[in-house]
């Protein structure tokens, strides 16, 4: 087994208007099988992917919001959301889905996966990756 690499998935587009959001989620789920160090970033319109209370019935598309809640099962536990992007869109953390994971190293305590960070913290996160995949 090769060494663990740091993978960052950058999400900058709203869901349903294009295929990017769903494609990203699928790549993350597939990639999770390879035991890498995975981080997800949501900025710009990408923050809309995590907004709760979606109903896609009337547009005839499958609502893939529930799948984000499975990310913890796939050991994807670092989900960074950019503060400036939320604010620019009139959103707060409270508008987003409550994504949790169970910390194996802490007696399976349930913890929040989403962390709101500033643009400059986001820049640092991007700068410390081995692979950056953009969607």
């Amino acid at each position: 087994m090769s060494e663990v690499k740091k993978f960052l998935y950058v999400n900058r587009k709203a869901p349903y208007g294009s295929i990017y959001a769903l494609e990203s989620l699928e790549v993350v789920l597939i990639g999770a099988a390879f035991d890498q160090d995975v981080t997800l970033a949501f900025l710009d319109d990408g923050v809309y992917q995590l907004v709760k209370g979606k109903n896609t019935e009337a547009i005839g598309m499958k609502n893939f919001s529930p799948t984000y809640s499975a990310l913890g099962d796939y050991d994807v536990t670092k989900i960074y959301v950019e503060k400036e992007s939320l604010e620019a869109r009139g959103l707060t953390l409270g508008d987003l889905m409550d994504l949790k994971y169970e910390d194996e190293d802490d007696d399976w305590a349930e913890k929040d996966s989403i962390r709101v960070v500033s643009a400059s913290e986001m820049a640092d996160i991007m700068d410390t990756q081995d692979i950056v995949l953009s969607f």
Partner: peptide, 15 residues
């Protein structure tokens, strides 16, 4: 029904 995906084997095993 809950997550709208069929889980990967590793996830299934754990769950």
């Amino acid at each position: 029904d809950e997550y709208q995906i069929a889980p990967a084997v590793r996830v299934l095993t754990k769950a």
